[in-house]
Amino acid sequence: MKPRVGLFVTCLVDLVRPQVGFAAVKLIELAGCDIEVPATQTCCGQPAWNSGADKHAADIARQVVDAFESFDYVVAPSGSCAGMLRIHYPELLKNDDAYATRARSLAAKSHELISFLVRVRGMKDVAARSNVRACYHDSCSSLRENGVKTEPRTLLASVNGLELSELKEPEVCCGFGGLFSVKYPEISERLANDKIADAQATGADTLLGADLGCLLHLAGCMEKQGKAMKVRHVAEVLADIHGPALGEPR
């Protein structure tokens, strides 16, 4: 029997870039799983948790546990949302007698999309074509909360026509940081500019990443400054789903 995967769509994918959700569905099905999308999900609660609004965050976390605990796996096309489920829910609900154990068991079966495909499902390649020179932005939460580093590169190496180059400082934050980007825009912009300069210096025409937050921030900064680079979620490329990049004219 195929494992049942609950897709945690993430609020940003739902709102801004539904095709990332469909790319995730396609990849998870290719990896031999049945996929379902619980209708009672909204957001993982990061904005509340990171702001210290623990009560709001806990309410939302309980809602996610209720919606997803029956699946074999929970997969999110975002490192920070996966990190929220995997690392912060057990912390957030540790004193909630009814949910502490359930949060821990949800955490144990939750995964960031690309690491799920490669590590859990053993995916080694994809059948996709993309004639781009790409570079890859590791989001801090994919890198440090989920330990994802080689997995996206492994899959991207199998994309026909895609040439991948590496940033000089792949471990440095791009300056998004959720509400940080709105609270301290100037500092956020400086970090984005450093990241964009690093990306442009690789000679790549496309910036890929697995966290839509970082990508919207970077694409938004580039757009504002008139810097031409296409920005896409890595799942779109891996699933061979194309169309305008983030912020591109339709």
Partner: peptide, 28 residues
Amino acid sequence: KGHVHALPIMNGWFAVRDFPAPQGKSFH
């Protein structure tokens, strides 16, 4: 053009960035 240049809210965002326009309908 595919992106929003400014809005009367979220000044912190639009001070330094545009916002890439959503594809239209939500995933759900």
